[in-house]
Amino acid sequence: MSKDWPLFEVFIRSKNGLEHRHMGSLHASDPEMAMENARDVYTRRQEGVSIWVVASTDITASNPKEYGELFEPAADKIYRHPTFYDLPDELKHI
């Protein structure tokens, strides 16, 4: 019986100077083929200048159930943002 081609996630840099962004996924029998398939599927309209592919099973993801403990504690650390600090308006370039 046939075995599925594994799933890969595709990341594409749309132009130099920008980061790679997740574009979607596809199936391929090995990483080289995944890269070529990504080129054929996801860059038909000049969407990219660079491709990363990674086997979906190699991705470690956070669990939405842990949203509270992972992300909410950052909410009250407003001193990490420039607007926390009161400076006179006349002051420029700071």
Binding site: K3, S29, D30
Partner: peptide, 16 residues
């Protein structure tokens, strides 16, 4: 296409 997909999987495994 089954034998084609199988061949690609077999080849990928051999390469590893």
């Amino acid at each position: 296409g089954a034998w084609v997909r199988d061949a690609a999987v077999a080849y990928g495994e051999k390469k590893i």
